[in-house]
């Protein structure tokens, strides 16, 4: 049985976590921590309840700069119409995370800090060059999201540090993004493969692109060489295919109950091509605004 500490300020939370390093676990939405506690995955003397730190929640959009508080609920991301238009991958990732109930409870910070390799949010944030803000007893720091992850269930946060916000850039126009995944069920499932892509276009050429992967390595991956394959021209089946192949080569999936490594690599290639194509259609205005893609990205006209 764990004791509960309810800090009233961020400083109090950080101070307590630092002075109880190794014996205190932060809890926000609780959807991961409560399971870990019951199954023995986490044993802790103290739970530090962050849920009353209201200032850590919120979606602030200032021009192209988006700041998401760590306690922002996944459900809040899912239903935000600005994000649906300008950070579609984020909404497409949010809407497939657990159930409505789970999304109502779960927080963005919790999803990132639990560091599950198959987590939905990291790839969708990585394609927006997300940076995380971190508070600790020694002050604040920030680092690229990709550097937050150290391995399955492990982050690079120091004892006592808390993730407080995520900052990302969401272009106002001529840009598109997409998050797709492979699952067994069409809802309430973990990704066997998760793929996010984003791009900005100028005229008919892609000027910047990002490809990120989930569930196919010990940590979420950003794959610059895959994105580079499509930069500099319009998206073609050939450039998308090359990007897919590079992404498949870059990942290191395991074989488990959710498919073999070879299968996952093949799916990475396919989903990267589809995500790029949908992002392209969005960036070029050929996709209905706000319409979310089928979760596997299979479009009706796609040939067998």
């Amino acid at each position: 049985m764990a004791e509960l500490f309810v800090p009233q300020t961020l400083d109090e939370a950080v101070g307590f976590l630092e002075s109880h390093a190794g014996s205190a676990t932060p809890i926000a939405g609780g959807t991961d921590v409560m399971i870990d506690l019951r199954t023995g995955g986490v044993r802790t003397e103290w739970l530090v309840d962050l849920s009353s730190l209201g200032s850590l929640a919120g979606i602030d959009l200032d021009g192209e700069q988006l700041r998401l508080g760590a306690l922002t609920k996944i459900r809040a991301l899912e239903v935000d119409s600005r994000l649906a238009r300008r950070a579609t991958a984020l909404v497409e990732a949010a809407r497939v995370l657990g159930s409505v109930q789970i999304r109502t409870m779960a927080t963005l910070g919790g999803n990132l800090c639990h560091a599950t390799p198959s987590a939905e949010m990291p790839p969708a944030l990585l394609v927006h060059d997300a940076v995380v803000e971190i508070a600790g007893a020694a002050g604040e720091r920030s680092l690229p999201l990709a550097d937050l992850f150290a391995g399955p269930g492990r982050t690079t946060l120091e004892p006592g540090e808390l993730l407080t916000a995520v900052r990302l850039r969401i272009p106002a126009s001529a840009a598109g993004s997409c998050y797709l995944r492979q699952t067994v069920r069409w809802s309430m499932d973990l990704a066997g493969v998760g793929v996010a892509a984003s791009m900005e276009v100028d005229g008919a050429a892609i000027v910047q692109a990002r490809v990120a992967l989930g569930a196919v390595a010990p940590v979420p991956l950003i794959v610059p060489e895959a994105a580079e394959a499509v930069v500099g021209s319009e998206l073609s089946p050939a450039t998308a295919l090359e990007a897919g192949a590079r992404a498949a080569a870059a990942c290191s999936p395991i074989s488990d109950v959710r498919g073999s490594a070879d299968y996952r690599r093949a799916v990475v290639s396919i989903l990267v091509q589809r995500a790029l194509r949908i992002a392209w259609l969005r960036a070029t205005g050929d996709w209905p605004e706000g319409l979310l893609a089928p979760i596997n990205g299979l479009l009706a006209e796609e040939p067998a």
Partner: peptide
């Protein structure tokens, strides 16, 4: 007790949550 079945759903301030994972 893992949030997968929804049988324990209740409303908190009108929003649905799974009470098995709620402190």
């Amino acid at each position: 007790l893992t949030g997968d079945c929804g049988a324990c759903t209740v409303l908190v301030d009108g929003e649905p949550i799974v009470s098995c994972l709620q402190l």
